[in-house]
Amino acid sequence: MILVRPDRVMGLCNRYFYIYTRSGFRLLDVIFWPVMDLVVWGLIAKYFMRLNSDNPTAVSFLLGAIIFFNILNRAQQSISVSFLEDLWSRNLLNAFVAPITVAEFVASTFVVGLTQIFAVSLIMSVLAFCLYTFNILAISFALIPLFLNLLFMGWSVGMFTTALIFRFGHQAEALAWAVPFLIQPVSAVFYPVSVLPDWLQPVAYMVPATYVFEGMRAVLSGNVEIASYLLKAAGLNIFYFIAISIFFGAMLNSARERGALAKLVL
């Protein structure tokens, strides 16, 4: 049995391509905010450096964190916001009654998300180099597994958010933007886990992104041995991806039984 047919995934991707390229506001959302984050946080970091220049890698930590967090955020939005796009254009019913599998729908959002992330990360990386002489390639080969771990975590969070929209309907739409920022404080994005209160540290260690950001800082500090970070992040990602896929299916079925799916798409 073929779960994912490439022609159908391509059809869905074409639709997102048209939607994104037609809407100036969507492009603004995809490109403008990440670039603004980079510029503002880069300037703040430079200012702190001027006040206290004991740690010259502080700017790199911050800029790396901004670029990496954007990968996580974009990956989750590529699923949850793509779903909302269909909802808002009152097209979800047409999509639901077309012969496409949930796997094809999710796969197309993966492809669209990946394309967006590459484009935005490239723009941010070039800007970071031009404005602050921060070279993301300094992370070297570790960049790829760190990137992939964030991508998978973002997709899992996106599926989780979409499942909550199935469950709670339109009132849960804001979660499509909010969830990554709810996780951010315990993901060690801008600071190491050791900064967190003792009682919160175990929670941070349950988040795959924590190991990615700790690993990124280790690499930027000159430590090339980050395999343990990568393995822990990958292990957690696999666990969450499976658990959230089951949760997603359960929420979809629950929405069908309660009639909530029909209310949502009509």
Binding site: Y18, S89, R90, N94, V97
Partner: peptide
């Protein structure tokens, strides 16, 4: 199968 409804639109920002 296929389906058409007066109340279900196609994406408005596509030709």
């Amino acid at each position: 199968c296929n389906f058409s409804s007066a109340y279900v639109a196609l994406p408005y920002n596509l030709k």
